[in-house]
Computed example of a mutant assay.
Amino acid sequence: MIEGKWDNAWEPVVEAFTRNFTEMGEQGAALAIYRFGEPVVNIWAGVRDNQGAGVTGQPWQEDTCVNIFSVGKALVALCVLQLAERGSLVLDKPVADYWPEFAQENKGDITIRQVMCHRTGLSAFRGLLEYEDIFDWQKMVDEIAALKPWWEPGTAQGYSPFIYGWILGELIKRASGCASFDDYFQREVAQPLGIRCRFGVPPEQQVHLADTAPLKNPNGLVINSHGADSLALGKIMKADPRGVTNRAFGNPVSFMTATNSPAWRQAQIPAANGHTNAVALARIFGALANEGRLDDVELLSPAQRQLCSQELSAEDDRVLGLRLRFGHGFMLPQDRPDCRFGRGATAFGHPGSGGSLGFADPDYGLGFGYVTSRMGQSLLIDHRAIRLIDAAYQHVINA
């Protein structure tokens, strides 16, 4: 049963959301949409634990939070752009100007802007890490400071699934004077917008989080909806077990196996372990789609907001094995269904592993937040989210 509120004109979006449960194996999810700074859709359904849809399942609530994985990269980028607007960070300055230890292994010329568009060669750790290492912030930043790039920085694009977040998170921490990255995020984004979104969830709050699990169809079979790109990625990883792609996602193995654990949820892993809900994402991206402002809160000035959709890099990615476009920490759309965040020319956003998605489309004033606990295998935008996006624009364009 779908719960929530929506304007009648958005009924096709609600119908598409319902079909994800009846046809695509969705078991717990939420969707929220803002248009021109106003909420138009806020719906949720299903259960938030791994007990299934039976009597033992805990119902999904409006404020249920779940791991959004790489959608968090966009939220990290927002914080960097805020600090750049205030002059606390300069995007074309080297990271080492703010973090001197980072200059090891000839990394002294890598700029903040290169980190934001994945052109550093710092996509994976070389030496094998221990399972617990990723839960220790200081351990990770020390490892990154000593890391040698996989190729000459600036010469190629290579998606950084995890390291991106620690680099920028450490810069945010140093430039703001906050005790942690999440402290800054709470002060400058979450609290002003009145949203629930944390990077590092206290133990006493973890009982309310949704568990993640593989997406299965109504017959109980794992849905294989990833397409040729994800298959190609798997071949790359098998062909070179010690290569950058394999180690980007699997070194250490806790990157892949620990995501429901208390240690993962409590740690700060900015590129991959933000926990939030659909309304929070819709409010953030709704502000960015609305000249950077929502209600009385200005996240970015209109001029600074334009950097979100400014293309910095567009080429075949050395890690993911397909062509991608990046702005300042945000993915930019391409003419393919699994990479079309919006229909406007200035749309930007970020998908998360398994299916969650947030994006802004300033041309149509649209802020979109979708979260799910059932992880599909699509490499970029999941088929469930594509269905929701198509339904939303069917209304927006025809209105």
Results as ranks from 00 to 15, higher is better:
I110L: 01
E130T: 10
D97Q: 11
Q82W: 09
H118R: 08
R86C: 10
D97L: 02
A103R: 05
D109Y: 09
M116H: 05
G108K: 09
S123F: 06
L91K: 15
V90F: 10
V80Q: 07
V80L: 12
L81E: 04
F102Q: 00
N106V: 00
L83N: 14
L81Y: 02
G87F: 11
D109L: 09
V76L: 11
W99E: 04
G121W: 02
I110F: 03
Y98F: 10
A84Y: 06
E101F: 11
W99I: 00
Q114D: 12
L122R: 07
V80W: 12
V95A: 02
Q82I: 08
T120L: 10
E101C: 10
A124H: 13
T120I: 08
C117V: 12
I112P: 06
D109F: 05
A77C: 02
C79E: 13
L81G: 04
E105P: 04
A96V: 01
Q104F: 00
G127Y: 04
L122D: 00
I110C: 05
L129W: 09
P100S: 01
V115Q: 01
G87K: 11
P100F: 05
L128Y: 06
V80H: 05
F125E: 03
G108L: 03
N106M: 05
M116D: 05
A77H: 10
A77W: 13
V90A: 12
V80F: 07
F102C: 01
L122P: 01
G87T: 10
S88P: 03
G127L: 06
C79F: 08
S88K: 13
A84C: 12
L122W: 06
L83F: 08
I112D: 11
V80G: 11
S88L: 15
G108W: 06
C79T: 14
V90L: 15
S88R: 14
P100Q: 08
E101N: 11
L129H: 06
V115C: 14
L128G: 13
G127N: 14
G87Y: 14
K107G: 00
V115L: 11
M116P: 06
L91F: 05
R113I: 11
L128A: 14
V115D: 06
V76K: 08
Y131D: 01
G127C: 08
V76A: 02
Q104N: 03
E105T: 04
L128I: 13
A84G: 12
A84P: 04
H118D: 06
C117T: 02
V76D: 03
Q104V: 00
Y98K: 09
R119G: 09
L91E: 10
C117I: 05
P94C: 13
G121N: 02
V90T: 14
L91N: 01
W99D: 03
T111D: 01
V90Q: 13
S88F: 07
R86P: 04
L81K: 15
H118I: 05
E130H: 12
R113L: 07
Q104M: 00
T120Y: 07
I110H: 04
I112T: 08
M116S: 13
S123A: 15
E105S: 14
L128P: 12
A124N: 12
